[in-house]
Design a binder for these strands. Sequence first.
DNA 1: TTAATTTATGTAACCAGTTACGTAATTTGT
DNA 2: ACAAATTACGTAACTGGTTACATAAATTAA
Lengths: 160, 160
Amino acid sequence: MENDFLYEMEYPGLTGRLKRLSDLFIYQTKQFYRDHDLDIEPNWHPIFELLKKHERLTITEIATYLHFTHPAIVKLIDKMKAHGYIKSIRDKTDKRKFQLELSEKARSKMPLLETYWAAGNLALEQMLEFDDSLLQQMKVLESNMSSREFNRRMEDNLKN
Amino acid sequence: MENDFLYEMEYPGLTGRLKRLSDLFIYQTKQFYRDHDLDIEPNWHPIFELLKKHERLTITEIATYLHFTHPAIVKLIDKMKAHGYIKSIRDKTDKRKFQLELSEKARSKMPLLETYWAAGNLALEQMLEFDDSLLQQMKVLESNMSSREFNRRMEDNLKN
DNA sequence: TTAATTTATGTAACCAGTTACGTAATTTGT
DNA sequence: ACAAATTACGTAACTGGTTACATAAATTAA
């Protein structure tokens, strides 16, 4: 973190730092999985959780829950299928849809995977010193950003 | 922000949220530039600032300052050159290097660009309510993450 | 009932970054 | 002085997401 020019900058620095932080989490989580010979990837985790909770979902439903575009989910699910974690059943009443659910392999592996995910959750809480104010502040920022408040404010500020 | 599954998840949710927040900043900044017919991109901003401060730098120096890989900087600089913002002079004493500096066009446009960047900086400060505790907490998280503390803690937690 | 619209999925091309690799120029060690 | 190692840059192929477009199925409206 020494000699890091992004600290010297303000909002464009923050943008880069957010992405970098996200990348660091992904990178170290990947490493963690690799070290323990788990054939899963960090971005599959939300899908596991979603299908655990909802039993069966379509591509579009998953995309909506996770706020990704549907082509992104198509690719993810293809990969999870290739590893045998997803069972996909063509919908009887609407033949455009595929109902996706966790495979037997996925369900039997879940208890093991959950111990790793729990270790990750705890690690994060420890690093944040069990203080959720960062998450709270991010929430404020996120809801401002998602309503294009940032853009509006930039325009306003420019006029002065 | 309603119906957002990433809120229901803990650390893997945070990872996704960080990236999403970063993307929102980039997206709205791009829009802002487009609305004002500025032919620049958000990720050029740090390079402008860097070359303003340091006058002339090489590809590798820029990559080091910004913590990007050098191929990323090659591509960025190529694009900025194509738009006439960068002048590149082969180093006399070390012919592998190119000394990069802001072009005349860049220098004459800087005062204008800075008004837009200032509007952005202020917008961020407003959204954070002039409270830098988010940035402080990110700093803590970043320095923990960059020393692979997260990975170490996950391993420790797993053993219990 | 068919024509028009909408929805669900798939696919191709792109984007901004990465890793891996190649090559030319420089520096180091003997 | 020259062989070996290192450095600076370039390029290709990959990654994980996007937008734009195509197509098949379902729904709505005349």
